[in-house]
């Protein structure tokens, strides 16, 4: 009865009320940023004396914001591609391979996900300073790839685990080249896993701050670094405007993801 919503009785309302409060707690800051971005007070006095689009104008007038957004997008897209390819290969090896230490390797591959990002950031910073990769696109891509790969391996690995292998074998038995069987049977069969891997890899890179703070140079800044630097100097409402655009972007991404998922199911 505790697991049947309709039979909860009074508890139903307590549980619902509590959850509504939590939902508000989760939602309020996001709505608040949106409101703030249209407020006319430079010093974040809220409710603001009036409403304005000034912060969006300032945001668009400063080419560095757009530049850093483009940098972020470029890095995130390269990371996504590399992460899905490497993750796909590694997942194949981990789920189907038969060599000693597979579980250990799997744990190793997932380590960057649980390990404190600041440790990785500092270590890569020192290493990249030495080999001259600091502040370069390649350096960013490598660092973010390390962080994104575990998500890719988990998503694709789970999909491969639940993919019925005999379908691939059947294709081979019917005369398909094994590579062709993989490309035309297995890959489509695990496409939701690939898709999840791509989304997560993109988000990991797109949202990543800590490594980026250490890696950034005056000529190469990602959007989170730009926000971070601005935040530390200034709480200007321009940040609220940038954040609002990011929220909109997230919502769009979620809708696309939901639509695509629906597409996969049908």
């Amino acid at each position: 009865m505790l697991l049947n919503f309709d039979k909860l009785g009074m508890w139903k309302w307590v549980l619902t009320g509590f959850s509504v409060l939590v939902a508000l707690f989760l939602l309020v800051p996001i709505l608040f940023i949106v409101a703030l971005s249209f407020g006319s007070s430079q010093w974040l006095i809220f409710p603001p004396p009036g409403w304005t689009l000034r912060w969006y104008q300032e945001l668009l007038a400063d080419p560095r914001w757009l530049e850093s957004a483009l940098t972020s997008a470029k890095i995130a897209i390269i990371v996504t591609l590399c992460s899905v390819i490497l993750g796909l290969l590694a997942s194949f090896g981990l789920t189907r391979g038969r060599f000693a230490g597979r579980e250990t390797l799997r744990a190793l591959f997932l380590t960057p996900m649980i390990m404190p990002v600041v440790v990785l950031a500092v270590a890569l910073y020192a290493f990249f300073l030495k080999i001259g990769l600091n502040g370069t696109l390649l350096g960013f891509v490598i660092a973010h790839l390390i962080l994104a790969l575990p998500f890719s391996i988990i998503s694709i690995g789970n999909a491969l685990d639940s993919f019925d292998r005999s379908i691939e074998d059947a294709a081979i038995l019917c005369g398909a080249h094994p590579l062709e069987a993989k490309l035309r049977v297995t890959l489509p069969g695990i496409r939701h896993g690939l898709f999840a891997a791509a989304i997560f890899s993109f988000l990991v890179s797109w949202d990543e701050v800590v490594v980026a703070i250490f890696m950034a140079s005056p000529t190469l800044q990602t959007l989170p670094v730009k926000i971070w630097a601005t935040l530390r100097q200034d709480l200007t409402p321009v940040i609220a405007a940038a954040s609002t655009l990011l929220v909109v972007f997230t919502v769009v991404l979620m809708i696309v993801a939901a639509l695509l998922r629906k597409g996969f199911k049908s």
Partner: peptide
Amino acid sequence: GGAQSQQLLA
């Protein structure tokens, strides 16, 4: 930072 000092005061 200077901007933060302004924000705190304002």
